[in-house]
Amino acid sequence: MTHVQERAQSSNAAVNAIAGKDGAGSEFLAFTLGQEEYGIDILKVQEIRGYDAVTRIANAPEFVKGVVNLRGIIVPIADMRIKFNLGTPVYDQFTVVIILNISGRVMGMVVDSVSDVTTLTPEQIKPAPEMGAAFNTDYLIGLGTLEERMLILIDIDKLMSSAEMGLIEKLAT
């Protein structure tokens, strides 16, 4: 099996798992990074907060803004604009931190803004296109289409459990 076939099979499995076999659809939290709109599984979201100052960690990757103390839990904060190389981030009144609970690990991700919760049926989710080696699509579930909107659906479990994100957890302890 070629890499493209493996990727397509993996993407289809992710679409089916997220969208649900019963056809009822799944809910995604829609947020923006730069000019694009993204979506993550709402069940992974613990809370949404305004962006506050973070405590920087020495020798952390650039996309790791630092850590915050959230009701006694040290939570690492990653800036997705830096992670996805979307230009210089600007922190303003719309900037938010999405607190995620991924396999029992609490972490936060900084995004430009959060718009709404969108329900997508399996028919509205298309597999992510193969972009070649220049663009890593491993963290994408697919593209969600809703009228004129298109959400880039992120497999937040896969993204947050990647090797470099594992560094965040080590830094926070």
Rank of each mutant, 00 (worst) to 15 (best):
N12M: 13
A14C: 04
A14S: 13
A14V: 01
V15A: 01
V15L: 02
A17D: 13
I18Q: 03
A19Q: 01
G20Q: 03
G20N: 02
K21G: 14
K21P: 02
K21S: 15
G23W: 01
G23K: 01
A24E: 12
G25K: 01
S26A: 15
S26N: 10
E27D: 13
F28I: 04
F28R: 00
F28H: 04
F28K: 02
L29D: 00
A30M: 06
F31V: 06
F31N: 05
T32D: 08
L33T: 02
G34R: 10
Q35P: 09
Q35C: 02
E36H: 15
E37A: 12
E37P: 01
E37Q: 15
E37F: 11
Y38M: 02
Y38D: 01
G39K: 00
I40W: 00
I40L: 12
I40P: 00
D41H: 00
D41M: 00
I42C: 05
L43I: 11
L43Q: 12
K44C: 07
V45Y: 02
Q46H: 11
E47M: 10
E47L: 07
E47A: 11
I48T: 09
Y51L: 15
D52M: 11
A53S: 14
V54D: 04
T55F: 04
R56A: 15
I57D: 05
A58I: 08
P61D: 04
P61C: 05
E62N: 12
E62Y: 09
V64I: 15
V64H: 08
G66Q: 08
V67D: 01
V67I: 15
L70C: 02
L70Q: 07
R71L: 08
G72Y: 09
G72L: 10
I73Y: 09
V75Q: 06
I77P: 06
A78G: 11
A78Y: 03
D79K: 04
R81D: 02
I82C: 03
K83I: 05
K83Y: 15
F84A: 11
F84M: 14
N85M: 09
N85L: 10
L86D: 12
T88L: 10
P89L: 07
P89V: 08
P89F: 09
V90M: 08
Y91H: 10
D92Q: 12
D92M: 07
D92Y: 09
Q93N: 12
Q93M: 09
Q93K: 14
F94A: 12
T95E: 05
T95Y: 06
V96L: 12
V96N: 13
V97S: 06
V97G: 02
I99D: 02
L100N: 09
L100C: 08
